[in-house]
Design a protein around this nucleic acid. Structure first.
Lengths: 128, 128
DNA sequence: TTTCTTGCAAACCTTTTGCATCCCC
DNA sequence: GGGGATGCAAAAGGTTTGCAAGAAA
């Protein structure tokens, strides 16, 4: 819990496991437990999850404002944004199509400002 | 190809394999070939794919207008819609955040008109 | 004691890949 | 013969699960 709620980042199970104590170290938790716990957090409404490039990405939900994402395909960073007009528009679309909307998932793909400036910017994975 | 382009449905690899001749029958194709071919179609711009509940869903792309999806969580059907205001709004959001947008993925989850009317409507999977 | 939580390893599911074979030019 | 397409089976990647052991109540 400490690890999950100490940053406001987006993360996947693997990244979280990397941040937790390794096997053999004190307070080690198995990945089974990590997955089980993440799922419980999602069910409990503390976290929200969505799919991005095959992995399940988690982010804080409880007490955190609704938002959508911009995903930079160059540096692979996720940016959040809120748009009141978008919220309204979605409601209208729901009404128009007779849908009782429970939620939505939107990710805009593109290249962020930084990466547009610097075409040679290294991707996260290349920095390892 | 015949199977893929004879309907305008959304489908996943598994559904396509089910529609193709079984093992032993004439014109049988292995699932490896199905996956390989689907990927080529996507690369060639004939199909588009996205993730939904863990599976990869395909739909026609070439010569098919841009659209987004409404997903009924009750009957698990995908409905398409087009929204000019949405397109405009996304462009604005891109500009506002300095993003060079290359595309987006949006799925609105909810319950469709039919399923709202008939709360006991059976889900596709239950009809098997 | 009863119940919950954990680690481990195996199972899962969907998709991809290595490789030997087959087909066709 | 040589290049590409195919089937098979195994591998991969991420996640889930059965089960036995340990911790908590």
């Amino acid at each position: 819990m400490d690890q999950v709620f100490s940053h406001h980042d987006h993360f996947d199970a693997d990244e979280l496991i990397d941040r937790l104590p390794r096997k053999g170290a004190k307070n080690y938790v198995s990945s089974a437990t990590v997955y089980r716990t993440l799922r419980e957090f999602v069910d409990a409404g503390l976290l929200k999850s969505f799919q991005l490039e095959g992995r399940t990405v988690y982010e804080h939900d409880y007490g955190y404002p609704q938002h959508d994402h911009l995903y930079c395909t160059r540096c692979r960073e996720l940016f959040e944004f809120q748009s009141e007009p978008l919220t309204k528009l979605l409601e209208e679309i729901g009404v128009e199509h007779g849908f009782r909307i429970s939620g939505h998932r939107m990710i805009i793909h593109g290249v962020c400002r930084e990466c547009s400036k610097n075409r040679r910017k290294k991707r996260k994975q290349d920095l390892v």
